[in-house]
Nucleic acid binder design. Structure first.
Lengths: 376, 376
DNA sequence: TTGTAGGCGTTATCAT
DNA sequence: ATGATAACGCCTACAA
């Protein structure tokens, strides 16, 4: 191992590297500067900056972090050196030193719902605003992958974790994080992890607006269609609907296409041919189209005979909205962003004690699929 | 600063920590073990493992990395220690030492197309298989964010970069990565970065199958609808279509809803009322519905009067396919996965010299929207 | 085969 | 205010 002067230090040089040594004259005296050309050139470090600016590494660090005051001209010299050299601090090294990686991990059971995209985008926005980055992880619907993924996240020493639609008992996987004080926050799932906070969109305002609008149009009964386990609305959304309909004296029926393995079409048919048919269907974004077509297949028109309302919780939904359905619009991007802020806050001040509901993310958007209730 | 014996070392203890010191009897003699309770407990390190196993840190490291042979019983003891302590190596420290962060960065201009989800999922699968993790980044459609995002990725010292639909000249942003030998790979954009390889799906097989099927049904003319700048098909996909149609003597007309600000409906109308109307429309996934409805609005039936084919490049597309349109199906998840493998390979062996086309990802899927060409 | 001793790039502590 | 120095957790060349 060859040793060579490098900046203010002596460093060992792997044999494969070529190097040359030049002296620089500065008022402080002689300094050494080593130009190293490796197979894979090494990025510029704080030491390079310090050398270029003619200050010590610690001064350079202070000038950049602003931890303590540095003489004006020195700070300026450091900043110019940063500019000319294109220096960017190595986050891994900083993370090692600060015991903080500036990374938040996101765990998805699977990446199929377009809502995930909005969430990722929103989380990323918040993370980036707080100088964090986002490590995205998906089990691709395979629960046997969970252990490996969580271990991977733990190996990264993420500073916080967001859980999106995880299945089953996670306590074993999450234990290391909880023990280390890493905040774990769950995105509105029906049942959060015991003891871990859940962040969800408070849809009550939007729901109430929608129900009131429907009631004002004379509607007295509504059927809600759920579809598949991942699309089942969270408990809070259900309760909002219960409260809002009760307040205006509207009856509510829930049908799940999962129960008894019914298709959306079969549900719509059985509902409309029942003794007390609804005049409104409420369905998740992905099923609206199917609902509308099922209604038409029975020879009825939308909205003259039956009105249709959808929960729209993804921006991508817009492209399947050529019917311009009336929707209860949920801004999942904003939800993700706010959730990111919650995580950052939790990293700073510890995991919050209670679940968090974010208001103002849902609003009623009237559309072409809603009209006055038909007279009998 | 208090100093205390810790394992085989002496370590300084910040004043805020409480500690107690116990002796452990082992055949080797006395060892010290320190139980530290900090405000935020520190994760178990390799030194803890070494202590628990009664070996040196280097032996523990060797036992785990398998770099060199370690005596069988020692290795076993290290492994049990890892089990009982729940040790996971700190990737930041390892990255610092190895000059490799095991992270690949993904840059999106925006996260709106559901194709992005498939890409992220596929990239994540490949990354995770290679023990890498994925740092996802989105400019949210705002080019003024680019600089900051790329700097952030550079700060992370990602080992490789994937570009998805970036806009404009990126050379300034990418320079630091290229200089550092970090492979930058572009996902099929119309024009890749000069000098940087592009990975794209080779759709020729699927396209040829589709065109041949249509020709066999008697179709002689097709109009292709493009929509918006991000949805414009890549050059290769265009060329495939040219070649395939030419081979069977089918004429091809391209209409873009961007040109002259025409809506999809206006394009379909003008096409079907033209002198030489097509008997087939080919449209991106997001527009099929609109195309079909526009055709129906003209009093024509699908597929009796006009056939419709779609490029389906996202799994989420399935939920908007209640019409079961005939599609040229592109497996974007698999494309992402393969692209991830390309990146990993590039990290290992350097950036590939040429663009990479991945075959077998596109296939023709007949559907309810295609039928025999109508007789005149 | 095992242990010792750096050093990766950064920040914090301690003298000056 | 500045500079030398010691960590952070890991890996590895080298000595034993």
């Amino acid at each position: 191992m060859i040793r060579a002067p490098y900046g203010q230090y002596e460093i060992p040089i792997p044999a494969v590297w070529n190097f040359e040594c030049v002296t620089r004259d500065r008022e402080a005296g002689l300094r050494y500067r080593l130009y190293v050309s490796a197979e894979r050139p090494r990025p510029v470090t704080l030491m390079d900056v310090a050398n270029e600016a003619g200050v010590s590494v610690s001064t350079a660090s202070r000038a950049l972090t602003g931890a303590r005051r540095v003489r004006g001209d020195l700070e300026a010299r450091v900043r110019t050196a940063v500019e000319t050299l294109g220096y960017r601090p190595n986050e891994a090294a900083r993370g090692l030193r600060m015991a903080r990686t500036m990374t938040i991990g996101v765990f998805f059971h699977e990446l199929t719902s377009p809502v995930s995209l909005d969430l990722i985008d929103g989380l990323g926005a918040a993370a980036h605003a707080g100088r964090y980055s986002l490590a995205v992880t998906s089990a691709r619907g395979d629960r046997s992958q969970y252990a490996s993924l969580f271990q991977h996240l733990y190996g990264q020493r993420v500073d916080g974790i967001v859980l999106a639609w995880p299945l089953g008992d996670l306590s074993a996987h999450l234990a290391p994080f909880v023990r280390a004080g890493v905040p774990v926050i769950t995105f509105r799932s029906q049942r959060g992890e015991p003891g871990l906070p859940v962040v969800s969109a408070d849809t009550s305002a939007g729901t109430t607006q929608a129900v009131n609008a429907l009631a004002a149009l004379g509607h007295r009964g509504m059927t809600v269609i759920a579809h598949g386990i991942l699309w089942t609305p969270p408990a809070s959304r259900r309760r909002n609907l219960d409260l809002a309909t009760e307040a205006v004296g509207m009856w509510l029926r829930r049908r799940s296409s999962r129960d008894a393995g019914l298709s959306v079409r079969e549900i719509v048919t059985s509902e409309l041919t029942s003794e007390d048919p609804p005049t409104v269907f409420l369905a998740p974004n992905a099923d609206v189209r199917e609902v509308i077509e099922s209604i038409r297949a029975l020879g009825k028109r939308v909205p003259e005979h039956v009105s249709v309302v959808s929960f729209a919780d993804s921006r991508f939904g817009a492209t399947v909205r050529s019917e311009r359905p009336a929707v209860i619009d949920i801004d999942s991007y904003e939800l993700g962003r706010r959730m990111g802020e919650v995580v950052l806050e939790a990293i700073e001040n510890g995991t919050p004690d209670e679940d968090i509901r974010i208001p103002g993310l849902a609003r009623w958007v009237p559309g072409a699929t809603v009209g006055p209730a038909p007279r009998r």
